[in-house]
């Protein structure tokens, strides 16, 4: 927790994917902080507690100086005398916050998140890994099923007129879009990553209608959802192509 908001970070046990979720303080009704605070929490316990809250309930998260638990108070909005309190004990993860050094990415594309979810799901049916290539003209996501020889490919061509699709965000356009493609393209880049982890990342589509994919050779793939209250980032380790 910092004066800007709350940053959550988690990594899977195989160290293939790191998730960062930033929630700005402006997304809270009130946000008070005396000093920066770093807590390690078992995500299962936190999720179990937060699921006890209904959509309209008010959740208050509290942790004191040198606290050993995060206290979550859940109250019903129109019945403020009804409050349930739950403690989530801290755990020792043996490490502090992880930082991925800021790197200049070679290429970035932004596409509809529902379309991205579909491609991740369909390519995952074919293979455990996929190749992503971004070249000047567009982007290509390819997976090969080595058993059957079947190859799946999704191609996104650079939108000629970026503004063309801006008025129709509710409808998925027939042609794929790549927003601001030209601004972020420096050189042709390709990466091979696990489809399983791309599927995980693509399931966050409800957060934002658009998702960005950022790449630099031999660096983790970055899948990023930007939304008003914050940002969700997935870093996925690159697989070195044979």
């Amino acid at each position: 927790c910092s004066k800007e908001g709350i940053m959550l970070q988690g990594m899977d046990e195989f160290h293939i994917s790191l998730v960062e979720f930033f929630l700005s303080k402006r997304s809270f009704e009130s946000y008070a902080l005396c000093h920066d605070l770093c807590m390690s929490l078992p995500i299962d316990s936190l999720a179990t507690v937060l699921k006890k809250a209904n959509d309209d309930d008010v959740c208050t998260l509290k942790a004191g100086h040198k606290a050993k638990v995060l206290t979550v108070a859940i109250e019903t909005r129109d019945q403020p005398w009804l409050v349930s309190k739950h403690d989530v004990p801290f755990i020792d993860l043996g490490s502090e916050y992880l930082v991925i050094s800021r790197i200049p990415y070679d290429a970035k594309i932004t596409v509809w998140s529902t379309r991205f979810a579909r491609l991740a799901h369909e390519l995952h049916q074919l293979s455990g890994s996929l190749d992503i290539q971004i070249i000047h003209e567009g982007a290509r996501f390819t997976a090969l099923d080595e058993g059957s020889g079947k190859k799946g490919c999704f191609i996104f061509r650079r939108a000629k007129v970026v503004d063309e699709y801006r008025d129709s965000e509710d409808d998925e356009p027939a042609g794929a879009i790549i927003h601001e493609f030209h601004r972020y393209f420096h050189k042709a880049t390709s990466l091979r990553v696990s489809t399983k982890y791309l599927v995980h990342a693509s399931k966050r589509a409800p957060l934002s209608s658009k998702v960005s994919v950022l790449m630099k050779e031999d660096q983790p793939l970055l899948v990023q959802y930007d939304f008003y209250e914050g940002v969700l980032k997935f870093y996925i380790a690159p697989r070195i192509a044979d």
Binding site: M11, F14, H15, I16, S17, L18, S95, E96, Y97, L98, V99, I100, S101, S194, Q219, P220, Y235, A237, P238, R239, I240
Partner: peptide, 14 residues
Amino acid sequence: MKQQGRLDGFFTVK
């Protein structure tokens, strides 16, 4: 150290 298919080596600990 960077390992094939893993994120180890890409991070610094703050």
